[in-house]
Design a protein around this nucleic acid. Structure first.
Length: 523
RNA sequence: GGGCCUGUAGCUCAGCAUGGAUAGAGUGCUGGACUUCUAAUCCAGUGGUCAAGGGAUCGAAGCCCUUCGGGCCCGCCA
C-alpha cells in the first residue's frame, strides 16, 4: 500500500496549501498520470477552482506548485504544472521503490480489512478426474487461486474447494477403456497416469464408440454402476479416479495452488442430499410437475421470461439432469442443509495447509467448509446454468448475494498450435476439446517453459549451482504461466500460442498490479 | 429467433465503472549505440477513421440509440 502513501501525501499537502491560500474547499482527484511524460501522479484541483476563483486552471496550479516546492516531502521529487492546468508530480523513485520493497517483504503486505473475517467459499479447478489438466483448466485454477489470495488479504475467512466429478460420463469412458477396451492399467511408456488416461485411453475410446456399439452399451452400464456405488466397477472407478486426481493435484501444487477440501460428486449423489433439496424445492413451489406439452411428466423450473425455455430438473423417467447435481452442492457450500459428511485428512500440502476430503463413513470428525458467500469459478459457457442455480439459491436464502458465479471467457488454441496437433483450422483459433484430443497439457507447458528458462538463466549465471538453476527456472516458468492467465480481462478470450508463450520470457520480471476493484465487484 | 461476451497501432492488449491533457504499453518494423559478426541490452523513430452511423454534452474511445463484424450459450447430454 505504498502507492497509497504517495497519493495520501500529495493529497494532504495539496489540501493544506489550498486552504492556506484561502481557496474554497473542493473535492479534487489525485490519480495516476495518464501518460508517463506528465509524471507519476496528477491532480485536477486547478480545473475545479477555476470557476469560483475566476482564474485560469494553470494559474491556480502554479500557485499551489510554488507552495508545494517549499514542503519537505519523502516521496515527491518534482512538482510541475502543465499548461492545460493539471498539477503533476514526479515520485522520488529510489525512495519509493525502497519503501515498496521493504513493505512487500512484510507478511501483512497489502492487507486491508474488507471482509471482517466473514466466511467465504471459493470453488475452482473442478476438473473431471479422467484426464490431465490442460491450459484451459489452468486459467480457471489461476483465477480461482488469485481470487482466494486477494480475499485472504482482504481479511475474509476463505475456504477453497475442489469438486471432483467422479461419477460422470467422462469417468465412465476411461473405465470402459480399462475394462472393455483392452487398455492396460499401466502405461507402457511410463506416462504420468493422468496424461495416460486423458491422452491415450479417453481420446481413443470415445473415437471407438462410433464403430463399436457394444462399447457404447457398456458405457451406459458403467455409468449406472458408478452412480449406484457399491459394485465392483464402482470400487474400480474409485481407485482410478483417485489416482488421476492425485496426479492432477500435483500439477496444481506445482502452480503454487492449494485447497482446503475435496468434494466428491459420488458422495453427494449417495448422501441423498438431493432428495432433501428436492423436497424443499417442491414444498416451496420452486419446481413444477409438468402435465402436458413436450415436457410432460418432468419436474421443471419455470422460466420467468417468455423467450427462455423451462429447465428440466427431473426427466420423465425419474432421473435427475446434470444441473440437478449442482444444486445440492450449492446448498451444501452455503451450509443451508444439515451436513451429511464426515471429514478426513487427504494430505498436508507444501505450505502446511491441510487438505481435507469428505467421506460418508461415520468416523466422528466433523468440519465446516461452508461460507456466507460462495464464489464458483466456471467459464462463461456455463453462464445460463449458473444463472438458474443462482436464482434457486436466492429463493432458498433471501439475504443478499450469496451465490456468485465468477465467469470468464475460455482459452482457445492458436491456429499454429493447433497445427502442431495435426489440426488444420484455416488460420482460425480453435476451442479445446479433451474428447477430441485438442488441447495442450499444463505439465507440458511448464516443462518446456522451465527448460527454456533454465538455459537462459544458465547462460547468464554459469556459476550457479545446477539444483538452484532448476529451482529458479521452475519458479519463473510458473510465474510466467500464472501471469499469462491472469493478465487480461476475464471477459476476453485468451488465444494460447505455444511459441509465443516461450517468447514472453522478457516479461517475467514484470511486477503487475491486479485490478482488485474489478474482481471484488463481482463478489 | 433469443441471451451473454467482444471490436482501440501490423500483432497481443491497457484505458471505459466516475466524460476533460497530444489516445498509451508490450511486441513488430526502421535506424543508431555497445571499438568485427551474431545474440542480448540500451536509445531514437515508425505506427490509430478508438468497427460504422446518429444522439445528448461546452467537450466522447468512454454515456444513450441503431447498424455491422467475431466468439460462446440456448438437449428429457454432461
Amino acid at each position: 500500500m505504498t502507492l497509497r502513501l504517495l497519493f495520501d501525501e500529495i493529497r494532504s499537502n495539496v489540501q493544506k496549501i489550498s486552504s492556506d491560500l484561502g481557496y474554497p474547499l473542493v473535492r479534487f482527484d489525485v490519480s495516476e498520470a495518464s501518460q508517463p511524460e506528465f509524471g507519476d501522479v496528477s491532480c485536477n484541483i486547478g480545473f475545479l477552482l477555476a470557476k469560483p476563483l475566476k482564474k485560469r486552471p494553470s494559474e491556480i496550479a502554479e500557485s499551489i506548485a510554488n507552495e508545494y516546492k517549499k514542503y519537505k516531502t519523502s516521496f515527491v521529487s518534482q512538482v510541475n504544472v502543465h499548461p492545460s492546468g493539471y498539477l503533476n508530480f514526479v515520485a522520488n523513485h529510489s525512495a519509493f521503490i525502497k519503501s515498496v520493497m521493504q513493505s512487500s517483504a512484510r507478511q501483512d503486505y497489502g492487507k486491508f480489512d474488507l471482509g471482517k473475517s466473514s466466511k467465504i467459499v471459493v470453488e475452482h479447478t473442478s476438473v473431471n478426474p479422467n484426464k490431465a489438466l490442460h491450459i484451459g483448466h489452468v486459467r480457471n485454477i489461476v483465477i480461482g487461486d488469485t481470487m482466494a489470495r486477494i480475499l485472504n488479504k482482504a481479511c475474509y475467512d476463505v475456504r477453497v474447494l475442489n469438486y471432483v466429478d467422479d461419477s460422470g460420463l467422462q469417468v465412465a469412458d476411461i473405465i470402459v477403456g480399462f475394462r472393455y477396451g483392452g487398455f492396460d492399467i499401466e502405461s507402457a511408456q511410463n506416462q504420468k497416469f493422468d496424461h495416460y488416461c486423458g491422452d491415450v485411453v479417453y481420446v481413443s475410446i470415445t473415437e471407438r464408440y462410433e464403430k463399436e456399439p457394444l462399447l457404447a452399451e457398456k458405457r451406459t452400464i458403467v455409468l449406472k454402476e458408478l452412480e449406484e456405488g457399491n459394485s465392483e466397477i464402482a470400487k474400480f472407478g474409485d481407485k482410478i479416479t483417485r489416482r488421476v486426481l492425485e496426479e492432477q493435484l500435483k500439477t496444481c501444487w506445482r502452480l503454487g495452488v492449494t485447497y482446503d477440501c475435496l468434494n466428491f460428486e459420488s458422495q453427494i449423489v449417495r448422501s441423498r442430499l438431493w432428495n432433501v433439496v428436492l423436497d424443499k424445492m417442491k414444498s416451496m413451489g420452486l419446481i413444477y410437475l409438468e402435465n402436458e406439452g413436450k415436457n410432460a411428466g418432468c419436474w421443471v423450473i419455470k422460466s420467468d421470461s417468455e423467450t427462455e425455455e423451462d429447465k428440466i430438473l427431473i426427466r420423465s423417467n425419474g432421473i435427475a439432469t446434470y444441473i440437478a447435481k449442482d444444486i445440492p452442492y450449492a446448498t451444501w457450500k452455503l451450509g443451508l442443509l444439515e451436513d451429511p459428511f464426515y471429514y478426513k485428512q487427504y494430505t498436508v500440502q507444501k505450505n502446511d495447509r491441510i487438505l481435507w476430503e469428505t467421506t460418508l463413513e461415520n468416523i466422528g470428525t466433523k468440519m465446516n467448509f461452508t461460507g456466507d458467500t460462495v464464489i464458483t469459478v466456471i467459464d462463461s459457457r456455463q453462464s445460463r446454468l449458473q444463472k438458474i442455480i443462482t436464482k434457486i439459491i436466492s429463493d432458498f436464502k433471501s439475504e443478499g448475494k450469496s451465490y456468485v458465479h465468477l465467469g470468464y471467457e475460455s482459452v482457445t488454441l492458436s491456429s499454429d498450435t493447433a497445427k502442431n496437433l495435426n489440426l488444420e483450422t484455416e488460420g482460425k483459433s480453435v476451442q479445446m476439446s479433451g474428447r477430441k484430443g485438442i488441447y495442450v497439457n499444463a505439465d507440458s507447458v511448464l516443462d518446456i517453459l522451465g527448460k527454456k528458462t533454465y538455459e537462459e538463466v544458465k547462460k547468464r549465471n554459469p556459476e550457479l549451482d545446477d539444483m538452484l538453476l532448476v529451482k529458479i527456472a521452475e519458479q519463473v516458468a510458473v510465474g510466467a504461466l500464472r501471469y499469462a492467465m491472469i493478465k487480461q480481462d476475464l471477459d476476453k478470450i485468451i488465444t494460447f500460442d505455444m511459441t509465443e508463450s516461450l517468447e514472453s520470457r522478457r516479461r517475467y520480471g514484470a511486477i503487475h498490479t491486479i485490478r482488485i476493484r474489478k474482481i471484488c465487484e463481482n463478489s
